[in-house]
């Protein structure tokens, strides 16, 4: 399996710094951005397996990023990591298609476990999509 590419989205650089370090030490390829628009830009430019997304950010907030990312034709799974008071928002994000959520502060091991799960799901969906495409092509040929 290729190294999991992670996009960290959080407005606090100190947080993204320490998390980048921890995840990097655990063998992940981490890119950190500190705003919603930067996140979308990054998603358009490169392929990421998992996006770890904060909900409360100045400018484009996490929810908007999630919604707009769904418009893009990508398979990146989103993991919500929020310190926001209302878990309801996180649950709503799940409805919008986020993989799971974690509340700050969290243990690095928990985060890693969820990232692993997200990666597997992303791979599965991507595979299914490709298979579907192949099926489409095959069926299209047979007709």
């Amino acid at each position: 399996m290729l190294r999991t590419k992670i996009l960290l989205v959080d407005d606090e650089t100190e947080f993204t710094d320490s998390m980048s370090y921890l995840l990097g030490a655990r063998g992940y390829q981490v890119t950190a951005v500190n705003s919603g628009s930067d996140a979308l830009k990054a998603l358009k430019e490169g392929k990421y397996d998992v996006m770890v997304l904060d909900l409360k950010m100045p400018g484009k907030d996490g929810m908007t990023v999630l919604r707009e990312a769904k418009e893009l034709d990508i398979f990146t799974e989103t993991l919500i990591l929020t310190g926001h008071g209302t878990i309801d928002t996180a649950k709503e994000a799940m409805k919008l298609g986020a993989y799971d959520y974690l509340t700050k502060p969290c243990e690095i091991d928990d985060l890693v476990a969820k990232i692993q799960g997200a990666r597997i799901k992303k791979d599965t969906t991507e595979k299914e999509e490709i298979l579907k495409k192949i099926d489409g092509i095959v069926e299209g040929k047979s007709f």
Binding site: A25, G83, E107
Partner: peptide, 25 residues
């Protein structure tokens, strides 16, 4: 108030936690 305080405290807590983890690593 609680919701606001919780959010504001959770972020620095997360950083402290991770920094601790880095040291631990």
């Amino acid at each position: 108030l609680s919701a606001g305080v919780a959010h504001e405290i959770n972020n620095p807590l997360a950083i402290i936690n991770f920094e601790g983890q880095i040291l631990s690593d």
